[in-house]
Structures are given as C-alpha cells and as structure tokens.
C-alpha cells in the first residue's frame, strides 16, 4: 500500500533550496525520516500537509494531490509539530475533544475518543489538569494524542522525542511503535538523531541538505557490513603487533579505539580472513578476545559512502 508518493518534489525559498527533487515512495508501517537540522524534514511534512506549495515536482498523500486536495489530506492525516502547540490554560481532555471536533468528529465521538486516546498515551490520570502544568514528556504525549484522536489514516510526527530525557524518549518511541504496529496507522516520524529511529521504524529515509541520501528498509542499514572487529589481549603493544602482522599477510586493517578493524571485502577469499586472524594471534602468542562482525548504522552513510537508491 502506497501512503505517500513524491516525484521530483522541490521547495525553494529564494536562493535556498530546502528540498531538492525528492522522489520516493512511502508505504504502510513506520517510516523514519532522518537528517540533521535543516535537512528539509519539516519542509517535507508541511508540503505533504498541503500547507506549502512546492516550487516544482508533485506528491500525493493517500492518493490526494498535495497541490489541489490539501483539505482532503488534512482531514485524513494527523500531525504533531516539533514546537510547542498546547494552550497552557486549557485542560488536556477539553483540548483533545476540541481538536477531534476540528478534524470532523461528531461531539459525542470526539469526547469518547479523547478519553480513550489520552489513556493510550498514558495521560489518563492527568487528563483534567491544565496543560500548562505538564512536564515536557507529558506535553509531548498530549501533542501525540491530538494527532491520533480522530483515527487518521496517516500520522506525521515531527521530532516527537525533542527535548525529552532518555527514559521519556524511550517511552515515546514505544508509543510511536504502538501506533504504527498495533494500531495499524502508517507513521512518518522525523528525528535529527540519526540512530534513534532504528529501533522502531520499518523503513528509513535519509535527507541531507534537502537531498535524498537513501531510502530503504531499516534492516538494510543495520545488516552485516563484512568488516571484522578484532580484540586481542597480551603484553607490550599487542594491538599494534597484531595489526602489523595482519597487514603483512595482506589483510587491510587499521586501529579503531581498542579494536582492530579488518576489512577483507576486497580480497579474493574474504571468508578465510577469520582463520588468518586466529592463526596470527596464535603465532604471536596473544589472547584472542573476539572476532566480531560489524553491523551497519544509519550514521555510517554520512561517513562518505556513495548514495544508493
């Protein structure tokens, strides 16, 4: 199921290109949109909501054109902005009911769903409090509640973990995962912390300076890279001696912290590298602590790898 489709989507402010020719397809499940601040994430979300007009290119959200069917899109989508958006002098329950009504829910349904939604985000006991008295974590939950109370067909979450402490951040990501996987609502969630969304998202889109760097399944980012990390134990610069011995046998390697990074990917028989490492350690009388296959991280694509897809 295609939820969002963009083709050459571009947004330019004067000489600044906020989004440059983005062509991608987003399906069901949770899609993480990552990139540094200013990479074009918020611009993309506002374009998808029909709040901004693209400079060129097209996009469709749930089959609706963003240029001409903004109202239809905003009826079907839930949006949680990055910045503060809660009036402090209103009770959470009243505000969520009101926001449900603003999305077209009948009065009694809006009331029922507001109570349900606040329970789902963990604010059941605090729902009668003025939102001005909420902590950052609670405010983020209330913001999330207003985005899902009308049972949208797609949820756009802009930096939902912003400003939260590690524990609340974890809770928020668990909630995001719940929405995408248990509630069955497709989610597009952004973060400037590159590794954060690995845990919850099914697919990752990486933006850099308004350009698409990569778009693929999260598992593809975290698969085994082929590089081996070796740790040895011994006297007198054991790591250095081991590295030199491996290099002498034609294995490309370099130090990485207390480990040795061995990259056999260019060799005719990379599988034999493990044997060579074991034998070398024996020859040098060093204790071989581990040979570990390296897993990729989203951050790695900012370390100079060429862009794919």
């Amino acid at each position: 199921m295609t939820v969002i489709q963009t083709a050459g989507l571009t947004k330019q402010y004067g000489s600044l290109i906020a989004l440059n020719g983005l062509s991608t397809t987003i399906g069901a499940g949770i899609t993480g949109l990552v990139g540094a601040n200013g990479a074009g994430k918020s611009t993309l979300i506002k374009l998808l909501l029909g709040l901004l007009t693209p400079s060129s290119g097209d996009a469709a959200v749930l089959g609706h054109d963003i240029r001409t069917q903004g109202t239809e899109i905003r009826r079907l989508v839930g949006y949680m902005p990055e910045h503060d958006c809660l009036p402090p002098d209103v009770r959470a329950i009243d505000f969520i009911v009101h926001m449900g009504r603003m999305s077209g829910l009948p009065p009694n349904v809006a009331r029922e769903r507001a109570a349900d939604t606040l329970r789902h985000v963990g604010l059941a006991d605090e729902r009668y409090r003025l939102m001005g008295s909420y902590s950052t974590g609670m405010k983020q939950r209330a913001k999330l509640a207003q985005a899902i109370t009308h049972h949208p067909k797609l949820v756009l979450l802009d930096e939902p973990t912003n400003g939260m402490d590690p524990a609340s951040r974890d809770d928020m990501l668990t909630l995001v995962s719940k929405i995408g996987h248990d509630f069955g609502i497709p989610v597009l969630v952004t973060s400037h912390l590159l590794g954060e969304l690995e845990r919850v998202s099914d697919n990752i889109i990486v933006l850099d300076g308004g350009t698409l760097l990569r778009s693929q399944a999260t598992s593809a980012f975290t698969e085994v890279t082929g590089v081996l990390l070796v740790e040895v134990l011994g006297e007198d610069q054991s790591q250095h001696r081991m590295g030199e011995a491996l290099a002498a046998q034609g294995l490309p390697c370099r130090p990485r912290g207390s480990l040795i990074e061995v990259d056999p990917r260019g060799l005719p028989e990379p599988a034999k590298a493990r044997d060579t490492i074991r034998d070398t350690a024996v020859d040098l009388s060093l204790g071989l602590v581990r040979i570990q296959a390296e897993h990729g991280q989203i951050q790695d694509i900012f370390r100079g790898e060429p862009a794919r897809g």
Partner: peptide
C-alpha cells in the same frame, strides 16, 4: 502557544 499550527493542519482553510 503554537496551537495555530494544529488548526492550520486541519480541514478548515
């Protein structure tokens, strides 16, 4: 309060 962004992201123009 920033609530304006929530209103503008809803169906009313």
């Amino acid at each position: 309060s920033g609530a304006i962004s929530l209103y503008l992201a809803r169906p009313l123009p």
